[in-house]
Design a protein around this nucleic acid. Sequence first.
RNA 1: GCACCUGUAGCUCAGCUGGAUAGAGCGUCGGCUUGCGGAGCCGAAGGUCGUAGGUUCGAAUCCUGCCAGGUGUACCA
Length: 561
Amino acid sequence: MKYEVAQALETKVKELYPDWKQVEVELDQTEEKFGDYSCNIAMKMAKSQGLNPRDIADKLAKAVNDAKLFFSAEVAGPGFINIAICDDALLSYTNKSPNNPGVYSGQKFLVEYSDPNPFKPLHAGHLYTTLIGDAVARIVEYAGADVTRINYGGDVGLHVAKSMWAILKNLGGENVEKLRTVSEDSRAVWLGERYVEGNNAYEEEGSKQEITDLNKKIYEIHSKKDKTSDLAQIYWTCRSWSYDYFNSLYKELGVIDFDRYIPESEVTDLGLETVKEQLKQGVYEESDGAVVFRGEDDGLHTRVFINAEGLPTYEAKEVGLILTKWQDYQYDKSIIITANEQEQYMQVVLSSVGRFKVEPVERTNHLTHGVVKLAGGEKMSSRKGNILSAVDVIRSAESTSKKTFGNDNPGIAVGSIKYSFAKQRIGGDVIYDPIVSVNMHGDSGPYLQYALVRAKSIIKKAGNTISQDLSSSKKLDNYERSICRKMQYFDSIVDSSARELAPNQICTYAFELAQVFNRFYENSPVLNNERTDIRISIVKKYTSILEQCLQLIGLDIVEGM
RNA sequence: GCACCUGUAGCUCAGCUGGAUAGAGCGUCGGCUUGCGGAGCCGAAGGUCGUAGGUUCGAAUCCUGCCAGGUGUACCA
């Protein structure tokens, strides 16, 4: 409804001040005591025109009120115009389907997130990008975008060599048969242990060289398309174990399926060729046997794209990834979500690609998040092995949920994690507190799920006995008005959340909405009441809006709790 | 050293394209159960918005310096 109010107000401004060219009426949601929206255009106009803001505001408010629109205006303070929407307009909103503004309609979006590396365990940070990426993808999709979900993972590179080195040690050489002794449900853990071993071994000179050599051999598996040698068989088997493990976890989390997995091995060649080609063009340069990009001109730093061994680093692979995405999708926007330790690295890569291909770079938006920490704990490093794994987080939420409800309800356990991640603005460190997840009161996923269950229960009890004729009374009481007022903010909240790629705005709104509803619920009997008709229509609208909010951040709609 | 991110109540965070008396949740203290699911509702206490300046009618929000924490900074990802 914000848009309609702004339009009407703008028309009035144009009528009254035809000379005023840059009319852009901006409305703010305001405190309830001031009305439903406030507008400071009078103050802005006054500033540039040298007029008295109160005079402008008075004139505008009078024009609005004389016109008898669906809202009234009142001047307050130094020149705010406070807007109050009429009760019948608020009530009629409950019978409208959502006005989805679709800021991205017709646009092709790529969203890349999760990005786990095969041969390494998923840690809490992966859990974060997986869930927040899922939410971002859902939100831009709701805003009209045609979304392709991308999952990029490092199936080649030094980290793989480290794991493979330890795997070979564990098997006593290239002993394919011995892999069978690893039971199916212990594979993920087994691989995780090998990664830690390999990583430690890399610290020692002797094994470091062996790992470096092995790294080359693994690249050769790909370049020679080797599926049959003993080493290749071990590699492909363990690689598929990793992907199996990721997929089972995604399923458990209830995130929407990825449209495409792009393993690094798939983009390595393109990245390598491109960097070599652009080396001739002077984009990259040789230095100490390596191929580097000098980012200093752009205020960045120098990074290695091809190392002295002739192998592509992550940088060159990323070049291949960017170009692969661009060739295959010609997107309007490409969103990438990673930890913020990759922020400047990504800037260097993008800056280098920008020298020979501008569109994919201009259309890329890199969102970064902070470190996932345990409350009161320290940073987790998968290299040191002191990680909080994704599975640890999920299991702790599950056992908590079970203790609280006495039964398994994965939708609630996982939902509590999703909400606690999504409600924070993307960017800062993420504190995950298992104790808070034990609590499950207040600003939490279960609170919202419960708020929805209660409301739905009313509708179920009401059955079909309700007439939908609302013409008899269009005055709203305070609680009814509050919830209606809050509900009509939905469209503009979703719009803003999509524009700013900020799932936390949905969470904040959903929580406030539920709070307002709970007040209504405590104070306004719905059933067997002379206002049942109006209230039922409010409850119905509320459930549909809250459901939509929950879906946008990926929370299950549970039927009972 | 340089670059980027962060600093708001005891804790975890909203608010940041400048607007009215800076808001939630948790925790603390005190209330509410003949009624639609009490995982709820109501109330109280709790703030130099890191700090010092600047711009402005107006700054948590914009600009500058400083302080603190984090991250990156050449062959890891």
